[in-house]
Amino acid sequence: MIKLIGAALILFAGTIIGFQQAARFADRPRQLRQLAHALQRLETEIGYGHTPLPEALERTASATPEPLAAIFRRAAAGVWETESFSFRDSWEQAIKQQWDMTAMKKNEQSVLIRLGSTLGISDKEDQLKHIHLALLQLKSEEDAAREDQGRYEKMWKSLGLLIAVLVVILMV
């Protein structure tokens, strides 16, 4: 009886792990897309609205779903809260703190950090160029992420269950 319950638990856990892994593959392109939308929004605020950066980030945050919104919100808040911070520091810290909450990888992190070191310190055209560059890079990451999703999402969904079955068989 206990063996049966144990086997059921292992099967259940394996399935959950598999689904979670699959979800990460599904989340990454979605979040990359949201990030691109957020940067486009920021581009509009900077290019047409001439909105000051902290306010532009707040507005972007309010139009972006979590967990991405928190990055923008924290980057805006950081410059006021920590006096010794430059915007670059605040932006970098916000990204690093929040990154584990997202499904995104190292590549897009470095794209964002590079963007942060140019935001706010040059004229409008320059800003728009940098945001454009970041958008292009994110787009190629998104394409790669979609490919990965197609390849691994289904695999992980069944793989979790199959490994659990294997463990159960070995134990019996």
Binding site: I46, H50, T51, P52, L53, P54, A56, V79, S86, F87, L119, G120, I121, S122, D123, K124, D126, Q127
Partner: peptide, 20 residues
């Protein structure tokens, strides 16, 4: 240079682009 950059950011409210 870092101090000057921070100063520039603070006086422009982190938005040099809005100060054309």
């Amino acid at each position: 240079a870092d101090t000057c950059r921070k100063l520039l950011e603070r006086i422009t409210n982190y938005s040099l682009y809005a100060m054309e």
